[in-house]
């Protein structure tokens, strides 16, 4: 088992957080959040990977004849993709409204809610 995918997952999460923290544009910030989410895809798929395994679809292979990767994590990843799509759509819709109401998408200029 390689450590590389786990390091990639950790790196993606941190770099996404860095992007969110330093973002100068809300659309970029929504993208950074999607990068954070990509770390969960990488982690889940890495967890289910088996060396020499194939896709867990049994239409053309006999069950038990060869190793398959874990289908559970793939189901989790698919659910995660759906959650992410919902979220990105909602956040982008809010960014559109921010742009209309504030005339800017720079978070540095949104300073009404303070203290």
């Amino acid at each position: 088992m390689s450590v590389l995918p786990y390091l990639v997952a950790g790196w993606l999460f941190l770099v996404g957080c860095y992007g969110l923290a330093t973002s100068r544009n809300l659309i970029h910030a929504v993208g950074s959040l999607a990068v954070c989410q990509a770390s969960t895809y990488v982690l889940l798929l890495a967890v289910g990977y088996r060396h020499g395994g194939t896709a867990p679809v049994f239409s053309d292979i006999r069950p038990g004849s060869r190793p398959v990767v874990d289908p559970v994590v793939q189901a989790l990843t698919l659910t995660d993709v759906v959650v992410g799509a919902t979220l990105t759509a909602l956040l982008l819709a809010l960014v559109v409204q921010v742009s209309k109401r504030h005339g800017t998408v720079d978070p540095d200029e949104l300073r009404e809610l303070r203290g």
Binding site: T40, L43, L44, L87, E112
Partner: peptide, 27 residues
């Protein structure tokens, strides 16, 4: 409302990030 969308966006960023931390832990 200008403030409403701003508050909702902050709420969204932080809580979604928390959600992904949960998923990493679950993984």
């Amino acid at each position: 409302e200008a403030r409403a969308v701003q508050g909702a966006l902050t709420f969204g960023f932080l809580n979604s990030l928390g959600g992904y931390a949960i998923l990493l832990g679950v993984g």
